[in-house]
C-alpha cells in the first residue's frame, strides 16, 4: 500500500480559493491516482466546500482558519476540510428543490454527483468535512 499526502492551511479569504484548489488538483494528478478530468472535478468540489465554509460557517469572515489535507492511498483520494465555524452540517439545512432558473444549489449538485462520498463530522469547535474519490475501474 502506498500513501501520499499534502496539507494546506489558509485564511477564509476567497482570494485563497484558487491556490488551494490548484494545489490539491496538482497533488492528485502527480500521484497518478486520478485522471485529469477527475482531478478537476475534485478541485471544483473542494472549491464548493470551501466557499460554503466561508459564506455559511464563517459568515463571510476572511480571517478565520481553514485546514485542507489530501491523501492518496492506493486508488482512493481523500480530502478533509477542517473549519472552526458554526459547526452546522449542511445536509441538515432544508434546501428548496433545485431549479436551474433560480440562482443557487449548483455547488451541492456538483458535490453530490462528482464525488463518491462526502461526509460531515461535527466537532466541538467546528466541522470536519471529508470527501472521497476512488479511481474509476476503467482508468
Amino acid at each position: 500500500m502506498s500513501s501520499h499526502q499534502i496539507e494546506v492551511r489558509i485564511d477564509s479569504d476567497p482570494a485563497n480559493l484558487a491556490a488551494v484548489r490548484k494545489a490539491v488538483e496538482s497533488f492528485a494528478a502527480n500521484t497518478g491516482a486520478l485522471d485529469e478530468p477527475c482531478c478537476g472535478n475534485v478541485g471544483l468540489c473542494l472549491n464548493e466546500i470551501l466557499a460554503n465554509v466561508i459564506r455559511h460557517a464563517y459568515n463571510n469572515r476572511t480571517d478565520k482558519p481553514i485546514h485542507v489535507r489530501a491523501e492518496v492511498a492506493d486508488d482512493l483520494l481523500t480530502v478533509e476540510i477542517r473549519d472552526w465555524g458554526n459547526g452546522i452540517d449542511p445536509t441538515t439545512v432544508p434546501q428548496a428543490p433545485y431549479d436551474p432558473l433560480t440562482p443557487g444549489g449548483v455547488g451541492l449538485i456538483c458535490i453530490r454527483e462528482l464525488m463518491d462520498e462526502v461526509t460531515y463530522h461535527p466537532q466541538s469547535d467546528g466541522m470536519l468535512t471529508r470527501m472521497t474519490k476512488r479511481r474509476p475501474k476503467s482508468q
Binding site: L44, N47, A51, T102, P103, V106, G107, C110
Partner: peptide, 9 residues
C-alpha cells in the same frame, strides 16, 4: 464555480 453560475442565472 457555482458562484459564477449563480451570477449568470
Amino acid at each position: 464555480d457555482s458562484s459564477a453560475i449563480a451570477v449568470l442565472v
